[in-house]
Design a protein around this nucleic acid. Structure first.
Length: 558
RNA sequence: GCGCCCGUAGCUCAACUGGACAGAGCAGCGGGCUUCUAACCCGCAGGUUCCGGGUUCGAGUCCCGGCGGGCGCGCCA
């Protein structure tokens, strides 16, 4: 890749300058090359001269002079100049762009991919909400983010497992069972209060209804507490099935569905407490068992086993057991959590350290909340109150492509705000359609060329000299870099922004340069460039889990 | 009170983790289809990057102090 070649070139120049006695430094510790924002500043630039200023004890420009003086000649470098505070700017011949575009045509859907991961096993655990109801919009952002991060990792040669962890035990589940029980009795004409902190949503009725249809009224006289247990047993599988179906419709396919309950049944929860105690990190206070989390970087100590009731472990213990299990199956673990769970990271890492798992192996990826508006009015997200926007509803309304794109096209560090009506109504200006239209438009050109019976000869890249053509090639070239940064930073939104930029360059090219013309050589070159663009758009959309359509007909518009 | 995230054009967001004159989309104004899809393109207008200090060749980006918003800080998960 060009970046690597340039870095090597700069190092060579510094070494020569050193040998000639023009520089004290023989080997700069860090050489970075990047593409400047402004075209006048060249195709690539390096700031080594500035970074060496301190050790050399000279002005950056003087150092730059020395480096440039000893820069070896290369046929792909047209001109090297010094500018600004001491930037060394490279103006390259177009060979480097031609190489990239040819590589796209050669590698097709592997362009931008790498084997960097070398099969490292990465477990991406995401969504993982309690099985107490349908997925809502917050989970949808989680799903889109986790899935796209997984796609990026796969693209770079990691061995990825997508995993969902069901917290199917504990107080919330008891509440859930009682809530379903109340609805069940209600259907039998025996109105019952839904527990104070129970689930009041309408969807609870659906589960009760379904159970009633299948089991009849045989639990009519059952004691409420026992009925709650029965209803939980019956309803949970229904909820899980619906979650699976929702995710599948959203193009998220989990490899592993893990149940908290299994950890209890296999005795793994008890084993974790023993292990923590043996390590000396547990003490008793107020009748509860605490983890000395403060000693391990957490902000406060955490309760492991409750002091009251049946003295059950808190969620933390099975969570440790779960991560111990994951650790045995993977090298690296990524856990995708909403902002309301950000406090969990330190506790988890503290515990895992005691249990012998390097906390570095666990990465907690936090995303901020989703605020959805409808005609300027915020849609409430309270799940227990039962008023929330479901993933299914959202997808039905705007479609999978727009839904995924909207949820993943903004940095996960930023609160996501949008108005559904905008996504629907402004279909034409929605970025996802802008990108997809670029793809469809190219497909259309290719169909046209085929209809015209265009015969393509050998590609002569030098036919491409228009500014729009050069800029388009440059945009294509950026993909490898962008996709790598996106993977490293777990930031799929970068791919989305990139796709918009590439589409923009294509649309400009389309406007300025007619592809199918009388000039065979030019036509051949432009068709090749179009194909390459189409491929890269498809690769980018693929990483986002968004379709790349072959056609988008105008009459499909409302 | 403590911790995490955020504050950039009227609105929604970028700025490749310290680089050169801060960029896109929407909204506004004005242009462009006899030709491969106008779901497009071009131009104009729009900014004290919340405020104040500091670090250095160089700060929207890093540090300190404020202000404002979101989320946590239960023996819920």
């Amino acid at each position: 890749m060009i970046e690597r070649d340039l870095r090597a070139l700069v190092r060579e120049a510094v070494a020569h300058a050193h040998d000639a006695g023009d520089l004290k430094t023989a080997e700069p510790p860090l050489v970075t090359v990047e593409q400047p924002q402004r075209r006048e500043h060249g195709d690539w630039t390096t700031n080594v001269a500035m970074t060496l200023a301190k050790v050399e004890g000279r002005k950056p420009r003087e150092i730059a002079d020395a480096i440039v003086k000893h820069m070896p000649q290369r046929d792909w470098v047209q001109k090297v100049e010094i500018a600004g505070a001491g930037f060394i700017n490279f103006h390259l011949s177009n060979i480097w762009l031609h190489d990239t575009v040819s590589r796209v045509l050669e590698l097709t859907d592997r362009f931008g991919a790498s084997s960097e991961g070398e099969g490292t096993r990465v477990n991406v655990e995401f969504v993982s909400i309690n099985p107490t109801g349908p997925l809502h919009l917050g989970s949808a952002r989680n799903a889109a983010l986790g899935d796209c991060v997984a796609r990026l990792l796969v693209f770079h040669g990691f061995d990825v497992t997508r995993e969902y962890y069901f917290n199917d035990t504990g107080g919330q589940m008891t509440n859930f069972g009682l809530s379903v029980a109340a609805r069940y009795l209600e259907l039998l004409g025996k109105p019952t209060e839904i527990p104070e902190d129970g689930y009041k949503g309408e969807y609870i009725k659906d589960y009760a209804q379904q159970i009633l249809a299948e089991d009849g009224d045989r639990y009519k006289e059952t004691q409420l507490e026992e009925l709650g247990e029965i209803m939980r047993e019956r309803a949970v599988p229904l909820v899980k099935d619906r979650i699976r179906a929702s995710l599948e419709q959203f193009r998220v396919v989990m490899d592993v569905w893990f149940n908290e309950r299994d950890l209890y049944e296999q005795g793994k929860v008890a084993a974790v407490i023993d292990q923590l105690e043996a390590a000396g990190y547990v003490y008793e206070k107020d009748g509860a068992k605490w983890l000395k989390a403060t000693e391990l970087g957490d902000s406060r100590d955490r309760v492991l086993v409750r002091s009251f009731g049946a003295k059950q472990p808190t969620y933390l213990v099975p969570d440790f057991a779960y991560h111990l299990d994951k650790a045995s199956r993977s090298d690296q673990m990524i856990v995708v959590l909403g902002a309301d769970h950000h406090g969990q990271g330190p506790s988890l890492k503290a515990g895992m350290q005691v249990l012998g798992v390097d906390p570095e192996r666990i990465e907690v990826l936090i995303y901020q909340w989703v605020h959805m508006m409808r005609d300027g009015v915020e849609v409430s997200m309270g799940k227990r109150a039962g008023t929330f926007e479901s993933l299914d509803g959202f997808v039905d309304e705007v479609g999978v492509d727009a839904a995924r794109y909207t949820l993943v096209s903004t940095s996960s560090d930023t609160t996501l705000k949008f108005d559904v009506e905008d996504i629907k109504k402004r279909t034409l200006e929605n970025p996802v359609y802008y990108v997809q239209y670029g793809h469809a438009r190219i497909a259309s050109i290719l169909r046209h060329a085929a209809e015209q019976g265009v015969v393509e000869g050998d590609i002569v890249w030098d036919e491409l000299r228009e500014e729009a053509e050069i800029e388009l090639m440059r945009a294509i070239q950026n993909f490898e870099d962008v996709v790598h940064v996106a993977m490293r930073q777990r930031a799929p939104y970068r791919v989305a922004k990139y796709a918009e930029e590439l589409a923009r360059h294509f649309h400009r090219f389309y406007t300025d340069c007619r592809v199918v013309t009388e000039d065979d050589k030019l036509t051949t070159a432009r068709l090749a460039l179009s194909r390459a663009t189409k491929q890269v758009l498809a690769n980018a959309l693929g990483l986002l889990g968004v379709e790349a359509p072959e056609r988008m007909d105008r009459d499909e518009l409302e």
